[in-house]
């Protein structure tokens, strides 16, 4: 019974509804239109980076470096377009170039992770952990730990006005979903996550596919950085630093397995929705930062337990 409930694709959406129904009446403002729009806006960056993480998890890996990539991309983009001393300050092409640079920063870091994991065959955990430390260190060093303000207003709109941000996130999500379900690369990523040895025997270019998944994750972190930087109106070297649990948590709550092979970015959307709603509701109820932290810790443990239950259900 519990297994069937937990395995249902709509289980997490049900949890979200329960959360709203349960906390709504006691939490003034939770169900207001303005708040729901806020929730939607807050979801988008997390959604992007969690979708990338989902790809890596499906391939049987893990990417701990994404939060550092977000900070790196944010700072790189900001440094290019800031109106006070940016490399391309006030240049008409500054914003597009900056956006491109942010994506490029994510792409390159992801690619470097992928090369170390796929071809040097190092443990994904250590590789992405050291790149987390190194990249965030470099970012802080590069900025002297200072925020980069004075970004061109044209850029803010990307993160602050809902339609462009929504369009970007939806586009990226649709693309990732199509890649995973309708392209050869998606099938290959699933196969590598299920059983890399079988995949190899069947002619799947396993190292290439592994590297690809980390590159996608890096790219998605770069895209998330665009939205986050736009919302914050500054490039920050510590941007995204506290997002790690939410990123992996959203994927796992959605139903993506930590053991590879099973996952779906649409499921991750409901995971992100749940965590964002939870965060929002707890904040609205005036709970302090640390209580929210503890609740999230419990939630991730429950989600992981749920994952174990689901896997057992599958094996029977």
């Amino acid at each position: 019974m519990i297994q069937r409930l937990a395995s249902s694709e709509f289980f997490v959406l049900g949890l979200c509804a329960l959360l709203l129904a349960g906390l709504g009446p006691f939490t003034p403002g939770l169900l207001s239109a303005q708040n729901l729009v806020n929730v939607l806006a807050a979801m988008l960056p997390l959604l992007l980076v969690a979708a990338g993480q989902t790809v890596v998890l499906i391939g049987g890996g893990i990417d701990l470096s994404v939060t550092a990539i977000i900070a790196l991309a944010s700072v790189a983009g900001a440094k290019i377009m800031t109106l006070s001393g940016g490399w391309m300050a006030a240049h008409p092409a500054a914003v597009p170039v900056a956006v491109g640079a942010m994506l490029l920063a994510g792409f390159l870091t992801g690619l470097a992770n992928g090369i170390a994991i796929a071809w040097l065959r190092m443990s994904a955990f250590i590789v992405t952990l050291t790149s987390l430390m190194a990249v965030s260190g470099l970012t802080v060093w590069f900025t002297d730990s200072k925020n980069i303000a004075d970004l061109p207003p044209g850029f803010f709109s990307l993160g602050q006005r809902l339609p462009p941000a929504l369009g970007m996130a939806a586009g990226a999500l649709a693309l990732t979903h199509l890649m995973l379900t309708r392209s050869i690369y998606g099938r290959w990523i699933h196969a590598v996550g299920h059983n890399a040895a079988t995949a190899r025997v069947s002619g799947v270019p396993v190292p290439l596919i592994t590297a690809l998944s980390y590159t996608i994750s890096g790219l998605s972190a770069g895209a998330a950085a665009i939205l986050l930087t736009g919302r914050l109106e500054t490039g920050s070297p510590v941007l995204g630093q506290t997002m790690m649990l939410d990123i992996i948590g959203a994927a796992v709550i959605g139903g993506t397995s930590l053991f590879g092979g099973r996952g779906n970015v649409l499921w991750t959307v409901s995971g992100v929705l749940f965590l964002t709603l939870l965060d929002n509701a707890l904040n609205l109820r005036g709970l302090s930062h640390f209580v929210i932290m503890m609740i999230k810790g419990v939630v991730i443990l429950l989600a992981a337990g749920l994952d174990v239950v689901r896997r057992r259900g599958q094996e029977e």
Binding site: I184, R187, W188, H190, A191, H194, N195, A197, T198, A199, R200, V201, S202, G203, V204, G261, R262, Q314
Partner: peptide, 20 residues
């Protein structure tokens, strides 16, 4: 060990080598 992806669908297993 290296013949099947046990958790993947039957059809996905059959298609695996000829996807290209």
């Amino acid at each position: 060990e290296d013949g099947i992806c046990a958790g993947a669908s039957v059809n996905d297993n059959i298609m695996l080598a000829t996807l290209p």
